[in-house]
Amino acid sequence: MALNIDQTGVIVVDVQGDFTLFKQGTLPVQDTDQSYVDRVIEATRQLKAEGYKIFATQDFHPQNHISFYTNHDNKAPL
């Protein structure tokens, strides 16, 4: 399958310290050690050099977001 660089974007989703093992994040995903992050960086650089548009996302929640245990009565972290 041929990709049209002008119509193709690469999305890098939530590569941040909290989700990685190498930064000892609070919500680490399995196999996200330093070599994983290095592969993401290298792939992103290579695709950008080839002309692909790169987009990165980072999840964000305001302090009063429902996902935080502190916003629920009688709850504690697991």
Score class of each variant (00 low, 15 high):
Ala43Cys: 09
Thr57Ala: 06
Leu27Asn: 15
Val12His: 00
Asp38Gln: 14
Asp73Asn: 14
Leu27Cys: 13
Tyr52Arg: 06
Asn74His: 10
Phe60Tyr: 15
Lys48Ile: 00
Ile11Thr: 02
Ile5Ala: 08
Val10Asn: 02
Lys75Ala: 13
Thr70His: 12
Asn71Lys: 07
Thr32Ser: 11
Thr32Met: 03
Met1Ser: 13
Ala56Asp: 05
Val29Tyr: 00
Thr32Gly: 02
Asn71Trp: 03
Gly25Ser: 04
Gly17Met: 07
Val15Leu: 06
Thr20Cys: 09
Ala49Lys: 14
Val29Met: 01
Asn74Val: 06
Phe55Cys: 10
Ile66Met: 12
Leu27Trp: 14
Asn64Gln: 12
Thr44Phe: 00
Phe60Ser: 11
Gln24Tyr: 13
Phe55Leu: 13
Tyr52Ala: 09
Gln7Leu: 06
Ile11Ser: 00
Asp6Tyr: 04
Val10Gly: 01
Ile5Arg: 09
Val37Trp: 01
His61Val: 03
Gln24Asn: 15
Ser35Ala: 14
Leu3Pro: 01
Tyr52Cys: 05
Gln7Lys: 10
Val40Gly: 03
Asn71Arg: 07
Asn64Ser: 10
Gly25Phe: 02
Leu21Lys: 10
Leu47Gln: 00
Gly25Pro: 04
Val37His: 02
Glu50Leu: 13
Phe55Pro: 05
Leu3Asn: 01
Gly51Gln: 03
Tyr52Trp: 04
His72Phe: 12
Asp31Arg: 05
His61Gln: 10
Thr20Lys: 03
Ala43His: 05
